[in-house]
Design a protein around this nucleic acid. Structure first.
Lengths: 216, 216
DNA sequence: CAATGGTTTTTGGTATACCAAATCTCGAAA
DNA sequence: TTTCGAGATTTGGTATACCAAAAACCATTG
């Protein structure tokens, strides 16, 4: 296993800052200053910013500083719609293509998620949440699908992170994950689709609520 | 409307070369040499190569020359599967969201496609084909979906280009486009889905054939 | 005091220089 | 003759220098 390249490391660093709120939406990302304070040159910093722009976390403007993305609610909802389609396709394919190993991995991740539930740190439990969904996508054994799915998860990272604040939500998520896992193990397409719809419908509602609250 | 940036221009240039076959799959893309012979510096050439790698036309290797992509058939089929899901979702959303202007644009593109049918140049008629599909995706009024869809079309560009060789195929494509347009104008979800299935099923078969022929 | 125009500063885009890792070459040794 | 390794070379990764466009600032003027 090779360690991530320098631009990727920088991108990870910036991503964390964005998700944690150190870098607020709409803030400019001056590549020169940022490179200086991180002790790297502009070139890899530049590439890191491109990576984040591809993930939708920053927006590029011609001849201007890149900005930390601050997408309108409609944009996020568009992403949720596509994510739902991708996850349902993943599930459908996984029902026929998933191996026992795939399922074991999923069970392991789910167990990890449940055990982490009380240990608090949101970012950690959140990353486990992500990896659960990514593991389902990978179980489809469709590489293109898994990649695209991962990209959409990344784009929704911030919005989902904000909704994961409330403990009540996390409890619901726990149950929904169990439903997903169960349906997949039984290779029950219909049940899996239903579970995804519930999970993502819930997500859409939560995001809407967070936005309304932010409005004040 | 602003002109494309230098990296984009370079990427377009390289893309054409790859599609036309000037750059064969598996060939290395030495950024230094390529930049020199195009009269630009390595920096924008580097970015152009990143763009193409994101489109799947070239593959990056750590500490090695990037290569013109030569994906196995299974990879391409994976992409076709996802593309189908994306187009069906586009159609479904377009049935409710498309405006009359959207439909007019589609009719115009389709007319252009039909008229170009006999004027030969494959690359031109091929680009019109692409723009027809992209217009449907745009009619969904889901920006994220349209973007992702475009990216998948780009990744399948080469494979689809190869299958567009035979005139017979192009005739069929003509009819299938008409069916798509008709279903969308009637806002008939089911018919649209059927038409997409036919269109993309056909594409999958064609690609398979081209690959089998290439094997020799 | 407000508006305007020109100058300075900031900032991203591009070119170039330097470095380190991977590869290739070719000769020496078994 | 074959194999192996040291040095030369190729090549991508990174740092730095230069440039042009945009913005901010300020002085001048009505």
């Amino acid at each position: 296993m090779s360690e991530p390249s320098l631009p990727e490391q920088i991108a990870n660093e910036l991503r964390r800052d964005i998700l944690r709120g150190t870098l607020v939406p709409g803030a400019p990302l001056k590549e020169r200053d940022r490179a200086l304070e991180m002790g790297v040159s502009r070139t890899p910093m530049r590439e890191a910013i491109r990576i984040l722009s591809q993930e939708g976390l920053v927006v590029l403007r011609p001849a201007r500083s890149p900005l930390v993305a601050d997408p309108p609610l409609s944009d996020i909802m568009d992403h949720v719609i596509v994510l739902r389609a991708l996850e349902e396709l993943s599930g459908e394919l996984a029902c026929t293509n998933a191996t026992e190993e795939d399922l074991d991995k999923l069970r392991a991740i789910n167990a990890k998620f449940e055990s982490e539930f009380y240990t608090a740190d949101r970012l950690v439990s959140f990353e486990t949440d992500m990896s659960f969904h990514m593991a389902i996508a990978r179980a489809s054994h469709n590489h293109a699908l898994a990649d695209t799915h991962r990209s959409f998860l990344a784009r929704l990272w911030r919005a989902r992170f904000l909704t994961s604040t409330r403990r009540r939500n996390r409890q619901t998520v726990l149950e929904q994950h169990a439903a997903l896992l169960d349906a997949l193990c039984r290779r029950d397409r219909a049940a899996l689709k239903t579970a995804f719809d519930a999970h993502l419908g819930h997500l859409a509602d939560d995001i809407r609520k967070v936005f309304e609250k932010e409005q004040t």
